[in-house]
Amino acid sequence: MDVTVVQGDITQQRVDAVVNAANRAMRGGGGVDGAIHQAGGPAVLEDCVARFPHGLATGAAGWTTAGAMAARWVIHVVGPNWTAGERDRSLLLSCYAGALEVADSLGASTVAFPLVSAGIYGWLREDAIAAPLEVFGSVATSVTEARIVAYDQATYEQVRAAAEGPR
């Protein structure tokens, strides 16, 4: 699998699926979650309500339509909230592994990922960057491209440097 790093808006990525850093309720929120619900329109929320009437557990992954976005699917993952005391790293790793498993079940070959739990959930930035790279390098998948989308230039530079490794 190729791992690429881009700077931009995850909702504008032309991929098979975008990954949403969702909350347990699966009803929209702030950050990436709010942006995906806004860009996808009401179809994303309607599908969340229908597929996940009781939400999703931390570390779990599930999918919905992408609504009005260019992508076909949204793969929702619920990352651990470091700020609220959820510090089990296996839950963060599970988000990425679960997203790849869902992508495989859908036949998605290109998937755009945010840095799960790195925003308001307060996961340590270096580890929020290391976690997906660790999973992408160790999980068998049919996904051909895992694209990490950094919203700002500083994050893009950090992720790109980590993905390229030591020189």
Rank of each mutant, 00 (worst) to 15 (best):
G67W: 08
D33F: 02
R167M: 07
A39R: 00
T64G: 13
A128V: 15
S105C: 14
Q158W: 06
G107F: 03
W73N: 02
P42L: 04
A146R: 07
V139W: 08
A150H: 02
G122W: 15
D16S: 04
A150V: 05
L91Q: 13
L93F: 05
V143K: 03
G85I: 02
G137E: 01
G31Y: 00
E164S: 12
L45D: 12
P166K: 11
E145H: 03
S138W: 09
D88F: 06
P166Q: 12
D2W: 15
E134Q: 15
D88A: 15
W123H: 04
G40T: 13
V159M: 02
A17P: 02
I129Q: 00
D16M: 00
A25N: 11
Y151P: 10
P166W: 14
G8K: 00
W82F: 15
G41E: 09
G41I: 03
E101K: 04
F136N: 00
A130D: 15
V159G: 04
W63A: 13
S90E: 09
P42C: 04
V32T: 12
L56T: 04
A131H: 03
A154G: 06
R27M: 15
V15M: 05
V111H: 01
G28Q: 10
S94E: 06
A22G: 11
T4W: 10
S94C: 02
P42Y: 03
G85A: 05
T155L: 10
